[in-house]
Design a binder for these strands. Structure first.
Length: 187
DNA sequence: CGATTTTGACCCGCGC
DNA sequence: GCGCGGGTCAAAATCG
């Protein structure tokens, strides 16, 4: 199963593995390298419109013990004979912020924290709390410029963003109501 | 009292 | 095979 099954999949134009390397994190900010072409609205809306089992990403988890996902990863590897293991889509955002945790509209549960080499600031690991969704994100600060927060998303949400819906639904209802009166003067 | 965070242990891939 | 480092687990602590 590959990325083209997912309508909003974003393929970063840089090597995925470099996301974790200190050299990537120390690079000067160049938005064209990662997030410039990414549609934030698409990220927030998720890919639930597609429905079906394909909307759940097959191998968001890298651990191979006690989980069906891990078994699938191993099976796929054995079947295709691929030497490289599958790496889920990742998107990294650089944000200048005093806050580590940026509100992206989704609810996250922290599941780990690790010290980062050559950096005073730790890296935090979060998972989306939605029960059918196993999107993850990592948050850390740049070693070179600690005013910048790096948020790395892994996977695609398979459900709507609650906060976005809270905002959108009243607007849609109002539009539906107003559409019943096509002759109303415009403001 | 359920949900979330904290944190040390554990697992696994990779380089040597 | 061994050690290191990144990522995850899970029990205990904390929060709302």
């Amino acid at each position: 199963m590959e990325g083209e099954n997912f309508p909003y999949l974003f393929e970063p134009s840089f090597p995925l593995a470099s996301l974790n390397s200190p050299s990537f994190l120390d690079q000067p900010m160049n938005n064209s390298q990662y997030a410039s072409d990414f549609d934030l609205a698409n990220m927030l809306s998720g890919s639930m419109v597609n429905g079906g089992e394909n909307t759940v990403f097959p191998s968001l988890s890298t651990n191979s013990r006690n989980t069906n996902e891990g078994e699938n990863v191993n099976k796929n590897k054995a079947k295709s004979g691929r030497k490289k293991k599958y790496i889920p889509p990742r998107v990294a955002f650089h944000t200048r912020s005093a806050e580590d945790i940026l509100d992206d509209g989704y609810k996250w549960r922290k599941y780990g924290q690790k010290a980062v080499k050559n950096s005073a600031h730790p890296r935090s690991y979060y998972r989306c709390t939605h029960h059918t969704c196993n999107v993850k994100k990592q948050i850390q600060r740049l070693a070179k410029d600690t005013s910048i927060v790096v948020t790395t998303y892994e996977g695609i949400h398979n459900h709507p963003c609650e906060k976005l819906m809270e905002t959108l639904i009243p607007l849609v209802k109002q539009l539906q109501f107003l559409s019943k009166f096509p002759n109303l003067p415009s403001c």
